[in-house]
Design a protein around this nucleic acid. Structure first.
Lengths: 202, 202
DNA sequence: CCCATAGTTGAACGATCGCTCACAAAAATA
DNA sequence: TATTTTTGTGAGCGATCGTTCAACTATGGG
C-alpha cells in the first residue's frame, strides 16, 4: 500500500510550519510576502505549492499548528496543569508581556481575527483557538472554586468569557506598546474581578 | 499673505477622509489598495498624492480624523455626557455589537495596533485614541463614584485601564464573529467587575 | 542499468502594487 | 485677453505580488 518510490522530502513539515507561524505572527498574512516566506522557511515556491496549494493553505496550516502547539501548550502549562489555578491564570496573562520569553511576536489568533476578512477559511481556526483558551479558563476557574480559592457562587462560564476578552484586549495593548506597569495593573484587576486580589482573600 | 490664485479644490477633505476611514476600518492598511481608495473616495492618485504625500500619509490623516470624530464622539456621547455614567459605560460596550448602528466596520485603533508594524508613524495616533477612551472611562467612573453609584474606594485608574482592555478584547471578539449572547455576557461581567451588576447593587 | 515516481529548483508569467508626471482645466491677476 | 497659479486627470512607470512549470535530482522496483 504505502508506495515508497521517488525522492524523499528533504524538509521537516513541522519545522517549516513553525517558521512560517513566526513570520505570520510578526507580519500578518498580507504583510508576509511569498519571498519573505521563502527566506524564512528556506523552501522554494515549488515545494511550498506542492504541499500547501496556496499562500492561504500555508497560512491555515500554520494557524492549525499554532493552535495545536502554542495555544494548547500555553493553556496546558498555565491553566490545566498548575496545582494553583489562580496563580496559573495570572501567569497566563503576565507571560504575554514579561521579558525573556519572546520579544512579542503577537498572537496569531488576535491578529487573524482582526485581519479575518482576508482569509475566510481561517475563521474556523480562530474560533477553535479562542474556544481552547476559554475552556482553559473555565477549567482553571472550576478547579479554583473546588479548592475554595474562589467564591462558591462564581459564574464560571461568564468569568471565562470575560477573561478571554480581557486576554485578547491585553494582547492588543501589548501590540500597541502599552507600558508594562499598565499591563500589570490590568492583570491585577482581572484577578480581582474573579474574586482573588493580589494579597489573597482567604 | 493668503494668496488666492489658481483653481479651487473640488472635493471636501473631511468627506474624503471619512470615506478613506471607512475603507481602512474594513480592510486594514495593507488590504486597501490605492485603486480601492480611488474608488472609495472618487479621487485620482494625483490629487491624493498632492495633499497627502503617500498612502501612509493618507492613512495617518484618516486615523487622526477617526480619533477626532468617531472616538471622541463616542466617548462624549457614552462616557462624558450621559447623566447616568454607569448606563453610559454599558452602552459604550453594547453599541459595538448591537444591530442597527453599523455593520461592523471594525475599530481603526484595534486594527492599527495589531497591524502596527506596517505604519510606524501611526503608533502615536493609536496611543492618542486609546488614551481618549481610557480617560473617558476614568471620567465616567469618577462621576459614578461621586453619585454614589459605585463603591467609594473604587480604584478609578485601574478600573479604567481594565475597561479599556476589555473593550479592545470585545472588539477582537466581535471581529472574530462571536455570538451576541457571549458579547452581552462579557459586557455584564464588565459592569459587575466595577461593582455594578445588572440588577443594581444599591 | 533503466525506468517510473516523487521532490527540488528557480526563472518567469500576468496581475497588481504604490506612485509619478505631462498635460488639461479652472480661477485670479494684469 | 494673456498670464500665472493651483488643481484635476489618467496613462503608465518600475517593483513586487502570488503563482506556475519545465528542467533537474534523487529514490526504489524490475
Amino acid at each position: 500500500m504505502g508506495v515508497s518510490v521517488g525522492r524523499k522530502q528533504l524538509w521537516d513539515q513541522a519545522d517549516v510550519l513553525a517558521r512560517a507561524m513566526r513570520l505570520f505572527r510578526r507580519c500578518g498574512y498580507l504583510g508576509a510576502s511569498l519571498r519573505d516566506i521563502e527566506e524564512a522557511t528556506g523552501l522554494h515556491p515549488g515545494s511550498l505549492y506542492r504541499v500547501f496549494q496556496s499562500k492561504e493553505g500555508l497560512f491555515c496550516a500554520a494557524l492549525d499548528a499554532y493552535n495545536d502547539q502554542v495555544v494548547q501548550g500555553r493553556v496546558r502549562a498555565h491553566l490545566l496543569e498548575p496545582p494553583d489555578p489562580v496563580a496559573g491564570i495570572r501567569s497566563f496573562f503576565t507571560s504575554t508581556f514579561e521579558t525573556g520569553l519572546d520579544p512579542d511576536p503577537g498572537c496569531l489568533l488576535t491578529n487573524t481575527a482582526v485581519e479575518s476578512f482576508t482569509v475566510p477559511q481561517a475563521a474556523a481556526g480562530v474560533h477553535r483557538g479562542l474556544e481552547t483558551i476559554e475552556s482553559g479558563f473555565a477549567d482553571a476557574l472550576t478547579r479554583a472554586r473546588a479548592l475554595g480559592l474562589l467564591s462558591a457562587d462564581l459564574d464560571v462560564e461568564a468569568s471565562a468569557a470575560r477573561l478571554l476578552a480581557l486576554y485578547q484586549g491585553l494582547l492588543v495593548l501589548v501590540r500597541a506598546g502599552a507600558p508594562v506597569t499598565k499591563l500589570h495593573t490590568i492583570t491585577d484587576g482581572a484577578m480581582a474581578s474573579i474574586g482573588s486580589d493580589k494579597e489573597g482573600q482567604s
